[in-house]
Simulated scan of single mutants.
Amino acid sequence: MINLFFSNGLVLVYDVKDWITLRRSHRIIGDIVGTTGRIPSLPIRILPEEALLLIEKGIATMKSIHIEKSDSGHFKKFDESLLAAQAIEYKKTRKKQLESMIDKIVEGRKKNDDFRDAEEILNEELEKSSNVTSSNMLWPIWLTLQTVLPFKLKTVNYKDMYLNYTSELKCAVFSDLWSKGYYITEGVKFGGDFLVYCGDPICYHAIFIVKCIVATESISPNEIVAHGRLGTSVRKRFVLASMVDGAVCYVTVNWIDA
């Protein structure tokens, strides 16, 4: 079971194994929102529609993160525990790297009249090259949120609150597209609700920009023209999605030069 965490209106994934499972097995992409300076890192934010789908299909459970005033004194210890844990893991990784090239290192030392045994040289190189500080550490993705955070966790029924962050229409459209085998990401940057891909976005460009509209509400001709032009300009099809008689229906807007 994959663990999702709800905090300040966001649904987050902190465990890298869970993120890999979501992407490889369930076509859930998410968006990296963590950062360590210039390097993106965990956690991963997933869409409300993705969260609801995962929960309804029994793939994931959700817990809410509660931060109380009494927790504030734990932040320093928390940072220190992350740093210590990463130092241990990085040292293990660095040791494996050095062991794979120790013969060449020893040979180079001999040319400089250093005839110590391989183990002593390896330990020296390891100490010199495996130092992790707060200025160069990355988020330790091999740790899980439950084991390191001092915050209190509480199981939350996301179904009771998801409409605060999305709509039934968007959830229905997302679920329908997902059931057809597509990969789906957020589509705000292209003026829609979702971007739809035939494969993983790492390898494929989006083919559809999907905008969800209520069937009983009107849409102006100017909006339709704008959607068609936008889709053509970015080499995608602009699709309007609605619910009609309980089923998701789609209309594709094509721009044709006369």
Rank of each mutant, 00 (worst) to 15 (best):
P150D: 07
L143I: 08
F194Y: 10
I184F: 03
S218L: 07
V214D: 15
G228C: 10
T185N: 01
V156F: 00
S179Y: 00
D200T: 02
L169M: 05
M161P: 04
H227A: 13
S218E: 14
K170M: 07
F208D: 11
D176Y: 14
G181C: 03
W178C: 02
D193S: 00
C198P: 08
H205I: 00
Y204V: 00
C198V: 09
V196T: 06
S175T: 15
F190P: 02
A215P: 00
I209E: 04
I202V: 07
E186P: 00
L153Y: 00
T185V: 03
V148C: 08
W178Y: 15
W142E: 14
N164A: 12
S167T: 15
K211Q: 14
H227E: 06
G192L: 05
P221Q: 11
L163V: 13
V148L: 14
P221M: 09
D160R: 15
G191S: 09
C171K: 11
I202L: 12
G192C: 06
W139G: 05
T144E: 10
A172G: 07
N222C: 01
T216K: 12
V156Q: 05
T166P: 11
Y183L: 07
G228Q: 06
D200G: 02
C212H: 01
T185I: 03
L163S: 14
V173G: 05
V156S: 06
Y183S: 03
V210N: 04
S167N: 08
Y165T: 06
Y204K: 12
D176H: 15
L138M: 14
Y204D: 08
I219N: 02
P140C: 05
Y197D: 03
I207S: 11
L145M: 08
K154V: 08
C171P: 00
Y204P: 00
N157C: 07
P140S: 04
V214A: 06
D176Q: 15
E217L: 09
T155C: 05
Y197G: 09
V188Q: 10
K180C: 01
V188G: 08
A226D: 14
V156W: 00
L153E: 02
L143G: 07
T144V: 06
L163K: 15
P201T: 02
W142L: 09
C198Y: 13
W139R: 02
S167P: 08
D200Q: 07
L195S: 03
W178G: 02
V196C: 01
C171L: 08
Y197C: 06
F151Q: 10
A206E: 13
T185P: 03
N164Q: 13
N164I: 01
S218A: 13
I141T: 12
C198M: 10
A215Q: 07
D193K: 01
F190Y: 15
K189H: 10
R229Q: 11
V210Y: 06
V196Q: 03
K170Y: 04
F194H: 03
S220N: 09
L149T: 13
L138P: 05
N157T: 05
D160S: 15
Y165N: 02
S220Y: 09
C212S: 05
A206L: 01
T144F: 00
T147K: 12
D193H: 04
K180E: 13
D200Y: 11
A215W: 10
Y204R: 08
S167E: 11
K154Q: 09
T147G: 13
I141L: 08
W178R: 11
V225F: 13
N157Y: 04
